[in-house]
Simulated scan of single mutants.
Amino acid sequence: MKKQAIGLLDSGVGGLTVMKEAMKQLPNESFYYIGDTARCPYGPRPEEQVKAFTWDLTRFLLDKNIKMLIIACNTATAAALPELKRVLKIPVIGVILPGSRAAIKTTHQGRIGVIGTEGTIRSEEYRKAIKKKQQQTEVFSQACPKFVPLVESNQFNSAIAKKVVTESLRDLKRQKVDTLVMGCTHYPLLKPLIQNVMGEQVTLIDSGAETVNEVSVLLDYYDLAEEKTDQPNERKFYTTGSVNMFKDIASSWLKMNEIEVEHVSVEELKGIELNESDRK
């Protein structure tokens, strides 16, 4: 019997940071990933539009018969997670709660920084999640809208990236946080630069990596985990944007030489309907 895959969606290539950790922690699983590069970034967009785009990607993955959905995008998690969990039959996991829990466990001084897209920071979902579990913790949020375009254009190792990160984090550095949540799955690709600016005394939290820890637990809870077999695992990637750009970034970040990337048009996404069998 063919293995059912876990689906991951993101506004672009950022969710590959989640994919990398998922392949490491869950080597027996198959994965389908779609990045909406053509409509990236999601951060500046209105919440209802982000929700609609997230549904487009979700229906595409459901059409591939996935068994679990990971919203590997903080902006999409903030906008669409409650609705997706309410409607869909399969388990749906976002990246905000796992990142928040990890930050609470890590902080020693109760001073947590959160960086993210404009949409994520505007939603205040990280602040609300952290305050709900630890009211006395101080949360300092900073939108970093220039980070995602740097990653999507494959410039995250460039001199301009260093300059942008330094300027973007200048005010947050003054808050003397001891823990910083990278509240966008694109940001771990800039981790060395972020760490250099904030200082080694600040612990960086990768919300995507923390999410995979929870996925592992939920696979066992729902009895969905795959056992090791001779059957090969699938690693399929789809993008609404440039296949070559996506492949370059994915190959480098995932350390994969042979990577299968297919282009999916936005019009094709919009033509897929939600099957009643996918609803609760």
Rank of each mutant, 00 (worst) to 15 (best):
A5Q: 07
A5E: 06
I6D: 01
L8M: 14
S11A: 13
G15K: 09
T17E: 10
T17L: 15
V18G: 03
M23A: 08
M23E: 12
S30E: 05
I34P: 14
T37S: 15
R39L: 14
R39V: 10
R39S: 13
C40Y: 01
C40H: 00
G43T: 11
R45F: 13
E48V: 09
E48S: 14
V50K: 02
T54G: 05
D56V: 06
F60H: 07
L62H: 01
N65F: 07
N74P: 11
A76D: 00
A76I: 05
T77Q: 13
E83M: 11
L84V: 09
V87H: 02
V87W: 01
K89Y: 02
V92C: 05
I96C: 06
G99E: 09
G99P: 10
A102S: 10
A102M: 12
R111W: 07
E118I: 15
E125P: 03
Y126D: 05
K128N: 13
Q134S: 13
Q134A: 15
S141T: 13
S141R: 10
A143Y: 03
A143S: 15
K146W: 07
L150C: 08
V151T: 02
S153N: 11
N154I: 05
S158C: 08
A159H: 06
I160E: 15
V164C: 09
V164T: 14
T166V: 11
L169T: 00
L172C: 06
L172K: 11
Q175W: 11
L180Q: 03
L180D: 01
M182H: 03
M182P: 01
T185R: 10
H186S: 04
K191H: 11
V197Y: 11
M198D: 04
G199H: 04
E200N: 15
Q201H: 15
G208L: 07
V212F: 07
V212I: 14
V215K: 02
V217L: 13
L218I: 01
L218Q: 09
D223I: 14
D223W: 03
A225G: 03
E226W: 04
E227H: 08
K228P: 05
D230L: 14
F237P: 04
Y238K: 02
T240G: 03
T240I: 04
G241A: 04
F246P: 02
K247C: 09
I249T: 01
I259Q: 00
V261S: 00
V264S: 03
V266H: 08
V266L: 15
V266C: 11
L269V: 00
K270Y: 02
L274R: 07
E276M: 12
